[in-house]
Nucleic acid binder design. Sequence first.
DNA 1: ACTATGACAAGGT
DNA 2: GACCTTGCCATAG
Length: 95
Amino acid sequence: MDDETVERVRAIICSIPPGSVLAYGDVAARAGLRSARQVGRLLSEDGHDLPWHRVLRASGTPAPHIAHEQLARLRAEGVLAKDGRVPMREYRWAD
DNA sequence: ACTATGACAAGGT
DNA sequence: GACCTTGCCATAG
């Protein structure tokens, strides 16, 4: 993991507009990473100052330990989850 | 060097 | 849709 790549990931996550979301894999792809786990690891370690709540799994289900907080924050931005799951088809950020 | 673990994903059943 | 198996890659022991 070069610092340059880390910066790219951080930049991408920061640029996600409120009301939109991205999957870990999407962020990874845009940042040039080969594995989505890298993104998750980054957030767990160095993502405390980023809008991490706009990043979730490809299926629209957030990670278990943060699920409650995540859905609450998204709900505050207008992202409505259906039974703990966000409909990516509608909220997925495409620029 | 090897194994286990983790904010994951894709493909098969 | 749900569930299981593989692949993935950095870190920790």
